[in-house]
């Protein structure tokens, strides 16, 4: 469950009255709007617990609307150019933070970005079995595209079945992702070992990758069954 609370940066002073800000969006002393602190991340910007992954969409939406209202540029029309500029920046960053965190996939990608230094260092072993299966399916999709008559009918029925099973596998991936989110939150709360965190992050990355491969094949399969050309990108 997401608890909304402010982050705990205390080392910033208000640009207007020089009082400590506590990392809040507005100065607790003079209520002036404050720039986004440099070490903040999308979680802290939305006032969430550090890197909490199990998020309730409703709570997240509430936090987003509340913050958006506070920093809406319309409220700053009559303020100084600096305040207007800060409000615009805050509004923009709150938007990006919300759009990233509300989507479980984008949220996972963002966590991996925060927690792992460089994605290039993590070139995992490809899931050989899954890729072989997907290539086989893609080959049948090609055969279907070039087929006619009774063969076409049989291939179509077969591919529809494959489509259903791939969709089910993708859903299972998403369920596993949410289970991993809960594990992650528990690890963070209980200050789990770095090894445990690293292995869970690896698992999260694998789940994203699996989902991405499944998505490509599902997309190709849907297009073929709908009589559309192979999707390009």
């Amino acid at each position: 469950m997401a608890t909304i609370e402010t982050n705990k940066h205390t080392d910033h002073l208000c640009w207007s009255c020089y009082q400590p800000t506590g990392g809040k969006p507005f100065c607790p002393d003079c209520a002036t709007i404050l720039p986004v602190p440099p070490q903040s991340n999308y979680f802290s910007i939305l006032g969430l617990d550090a890197k909490r992954m199990s998020l309730e969409p409703e709570r997240l939406e509430e936090a987003f609307y509340a913050l958006s209202r506070q920093v809406h540029p319309d409220h700053y029309q009559s303020r100084s150019p600096k305040e207007r500029q800060i409000a615009e920046e805050r509004a923009a960053v709150v938007n990006v933070a919300y759009r990233t965190l509300r989507d479980p996939i984008a949220r996972t990608e963002y966590l991996l970005e925060l927690e792992t230094s460089s994605p290039q260092e993590h070139r995992d072993q490809p899931p050989a079995e899954l890729l072989s299966q997907l290539i086989e399916i893609e080959e049948i999709v090609e055969a279907y595209r070039g087929s006619a008559g009774a063969e076409r009918g049989a291939l179509k029925d077969f591919l529809k079945e494959v489509h259903r099973s791939l969709e089910a596998r993708r859903e299972a991936t998403e369920t596993e992702l949410h289970e991993a989110f809960e594990l992650w939150d528990r690890l963070v709360a209980e200050e789990g070992s770095e090894e445990a965190k690293a292995s869970l992050l690896k698992r999260l990355r694998e789940l994203l990758h699996h989902r991405s491969y499944l998505t490509t094949t599902i997309r190709d399969l849907s297009a073929a069954l709908a009589g559309e050309p192979r999707p390009g990108s």
Binding site: D124, P126, L131, S132, I135, H209, S212, Y213, T216, T217
Partner: peptide
Amino acid sequence: GIVGAPECGDVMK
């Protein structure tokens, strides 16, 4: 060789 690009889901044999 069977490899994949997890970023975009491309698969190559």
